[in-house]
Design a protein around this nucleic acid. Structure first.
Length: 480
RNA sequence: GGGAACGUAGUCUAGCUUGGUAUGAUACUAGUCUGGGGGACUAGUGAUCGCAGGUUCAAAUCCUGCCGUUCCCA
């Protein structure tokens, strides 16, 4: 068999885009749907999403947030209630204009996001301060037409996500919620996906349309571009006013409520692929890997086969008793070498090779995916595998942090900035806070303000563009 | 937003310039051997050449439209 035709043929370093697409398709995470910009999730891809969903659900629940479900169709009259919000989304809205042969009266939008729908309901449900806070989350898909370049997980016209919508009686409490959610996002992405993130605020220009302010977490990808990993918005009363989300307070005075909305999408899967993958394919962080350990039995005679499979099964049971997701690759028709490459392409964190030679020595061969290390592991050490998986998880985050650090640069000279932006990276640069400078920089370099880190607000210095008094040190980068 | 390329079996691909019923590999099925890093041999299955029109005795090939995919640049 031609090695070229089966594995990943593009190099991550030299041909990043092509490499990414190949990994998604060949590792069988997703495939293209017959409609432009839409993808289909295959079991391994969906399993990773389910794993993230489970983690988020637990954390949301601990924070008093409950799940609900909203319909996909939103009447135009509702969507248009908050003018700026509508204008922001309108270009990419899919419209339903017919039911069968009949035209519908009020056009129906396939939700680009659900604020307008959720808050219509919220205004019905909320009457008193006793009804607050109202904290709900929705797992669904959103639809935003992507006219041009689409890429699996990163830019698709329909994407899986969760959108949370909370309502509070005070501004302070709502703001606290915004930051609490962002913290949950950050922890989850770093702990589960082993991707380091920078948290902070979006600039006025980049904030969510309709929000008072937007907090965000951003990560740097190996090609030097920034990826927005999730956002948590403080909506203030911008939506509660048009949608009349109001409540009678303890003093019997009616107030408009304070709101938040927040979301992460399957983009996180795209980030995971980019950050950890290599030229052999996907590399999965153990915590989200659908299969954590794959056992490849090796044998020739029927007698050996029986012994090896029996031992494999024993190891599998031992691992499963510790909740380690284990698979035995007993496909008879394939050679061990083929299987090794196959599972490496799919990114399974640990591989156990076991043959007659190993059994006689009371050990197996253990191969780690993320650093390609191969060692012997005695039968009596099998129980340590959960610790090894944890170690891998930790190391993956550490090395991703190291890489991110090397791609982050402090910069104060605009000429130098323009020279270096081509290679990508995060650039910490002083900014005066004026949108004009932000726009000029975008125009001249293609880089925008990804995030103003929380610890970099109110920093003195000189704006990299206009040299005037700076107000903060945002991260500039070219983004996805 | 601007530009370029591409679409032929599950996958990759030859053929297209100069129209004549599609090449090869791999995968798949069966068998024998093999088995510690992408195995070998033998025999078989699998394609209305992206879709819809048009030109023609005849279209994968020429023309038009549509759909889809990829890459590069802002």
């Amino acid at each position: 068999m031609g090695k070229e035709s089966v594995g990943i043929t593009a190099s991550k370093k030299n041909d990043f885009s092509e490499w990414y697409t190949q990994v998604v398709l060949k590792a069988e995470l997703a495939d293209y749907a017959p409609v432009k910009g839409l993808i289909v999730l295959r079991p391994d891809g969906y399993s990773i999403w389910e794993s993230l969903k489970d983690t988020f659900d637990k954390k949301f629940a601990q924070n008093g947030i409950r799940n609900g479900f909203l319909p996909v169709l939103i009447p135009e009259s509702l969507l248009g209630k908050e003018k700026k919000h509508f204008a922001g989304f309108n270009p990419e809205v899919f419209w339903v204009t017919h039911s069968g042969e009949n035209e519908v009266g009020d056009r129906l939008a396939l939700r680009p996001t659900s604020e307008t729908l959720a808050y219509t309901l919220y205004s019905k449900w909320i009457k008193s301060w006793r009804d607050l806070p109202l904290k709900m989350n929705f797992w669904n898909t959103a639809l935003r037409a992507e006219i041009k370049a689409t890429k699996p997980f990163l830019r698709t016209s329909e994407f899986l996500w969760q959108e949370g919508h909370t309502v509070h009686s005070t501004e302070k409490e709502a703001k606290k919620e915004v930051f609490k959610i962002l913290e949950i996002y950050k922890n989850t992405v770093e702990e589960e996906l082993a991707i380091p993130v920078v948290t902070g605020k979006k600039s006025e220009k980049e904030k969510f349309v309709g929000a008072v302010f937007t907090t965000t977490m951003e990560s740097i990808m190996p090609d030097g571009k920034a990826l927005q990993m999730g956002t948590s918005h403080f909506l203030g009363q911008n939506f509660s006013k048009p949608f009349e989300v109001k409540f009678a307070d303890k003093d019997n005075v009616e107030h408009f409520a304070w709101q938040t909305s927040w979301g992460v999408s399957w983009r996180l899967i795209g980030a995971m692929i980019m950050v950890h993958g290599d030229d052999k394919g996907l590399v999965l962080p153990p915590k989200v890997a659908p299969t954590q350990v794959v056992i490849v039995p090796i044998y020739n005679s029927d007698e050996d086969k029986k012994r090896v499979l029996e031992k494999s099964d024993e190891i599998k049971k031992q691992l499963e008793s510790k909740s380690i997701r284990t698979h035995i690759d007993d496909r008879n028709e394939l050679s061990p070498g083929y299987k090794f490459n196959d599972w490496e392409m799919k990114g399974v964190p640990l591989r156990i090779e076991i043959g007659p030679k190993d059994i006689s020595k009371q050990k197996v061969v253990l191969a780690k995916r993320y650093n390609k290390e191969k060692t012997d592991l005695g039968f009596d050490e099998i129980e340590k595998i959960d610790l090894i998986l944890n170690e891998i998880q930790t190391h993956m985050l550490e090395s991703a942090r190291e890489e991110a650090k090397q791609n982050t640069l402090n910069i104060s000279d605009y000429t130098e900035f323009k020279e270096k932006i081509g290679k990508g990276g995060f650039f910490n640069a002083n900014w005066c806070g004026k949108q004009e400078c932000e726009e000029k920089i975008k125009e001249e370099t293609g880089a925008d303000i990804r995030v103003i880190p929380f610890d970099k607000e109110n920093k003195e210095g000189k704006c990299i563009y206009c040299n005037e008094q700076s107000t903060s040190v945002p991260i500039f980068a070219r983004g996805y």
